[in-house]
């Protein structure tokens, strides 16, 4: 088995080398600038110095850390954008998860600026998206969204040749649509249904299949899926795992 794979690999490699394409297996080298990681396009809400709400679309975002009982999320935004300026000034932002019902409105918010020629531009008036001031932060909560995180900036990071400034926000409170929770609706991490929550998936760039997606059907639980294909004994020994 290994020999035929090895010789197959050698043949492919030789042919591809002759073609001038660096390759291994079925993979070829491509540009390094593509955002190829699976992502989510979030609506990031902020207020300006006059308390006027703005919202933009950010896909350079994710969980940074989950220290005991808390979550730190991050968003990467170009410092020239109105949203970045608002976060700098207020030290707060919201991360709002769009669903399919409001996807065109959400997408629109990523195509125009909240400040046009020095004048405030109200994206909420154009799209009809609903918002109200956050309970714990000076930033808008977009109430059409199934999940909303209220965040306070705790750290930032910039890079000499990077375009984006990274804002790390501690989630001080969050909101979830009741219909997205199973059971008693009091323990979100045990009850949140991503399918009913309607969270979307996103792939950045200009590929044929770049853009907005629904999630697939659920594919199984961590720690359960391996057991179907690699039941014990499988050559590995388990270590008592830390709780996370």
């Amino acid at each position: 088995m290994r020999y035929s794979r090895l010789s197959g690999f050698f043949v492919c490699f030789t042919i591809l080398c002759c073609l001038g394409l660096p390759a291994f297996g079925a993979k070829v080298a491509v540009e390094t600038t593509s955002r190829v990681l699976p992502a989510t396009a979030y609506l990031v809400g902020t207020c300006d110095e006059q308390g006027r709400p703005d919202v933009c679309v950010i896909d350079r975002a994710g969980i940074a850390e989950t220290p005991s009982g808390k979550m730190i999320v991050y968003v990467g935004i170009r410092p020239s954008r109105q949203t970045a300026k608002n976060i700098e000034r207020t030290g707060t932002f919201t991360v709002n998860v769009p669903n399919a019902a409001i996807l065109p409105q959400a997408d629109y918010c990523g195509t125009v600026s909240g400040m046009k020629d020095g004048e405030y531009f109200d994206k909420f008036a154009v799209t009809g998206l609903k918002q109200e001031k956050g309970a714990d932060v000076n930033a808008p909560v977009l109430t059409d969204c199934p999940v909303i995180l209220e965040c306070k900036t705790i750290q930032t990071k910039e890079f000499p040749d990077g375009q984006h400034k990274v804002f790390f926000g501690e989630v001080v409170s969050y909101h979830i649509a009741s219909e997205a929770l199973d059971g008693g609706k009091d323990k979100p991490v045990l009850q949140y249904d991503p399918t009913r929550g309607g969270t979307l998936a996103y792939f950045a760039g200009s590929a044929e299949r770049s853009g907005h997606y629904a999630l697939s059907a659920p594919m199984g639980h961590r720690g359960k899926v391996w057991q179907r294909k690699f039941p014990l004994p499988n050559g590995l020994e388990a270590r008592p795992r830390e709780k996370h």
Binding site: T111, G211, Y213, A214, R222
Partner: peptide, 17 residues
Amino acid sequence: AENGGYYGYGSFLGKSG
């Protein structure tokens, strides 16, 4: 939750913009 865990990309909804 029952529907927690792993997911893939599902149906395509549209291009950004």
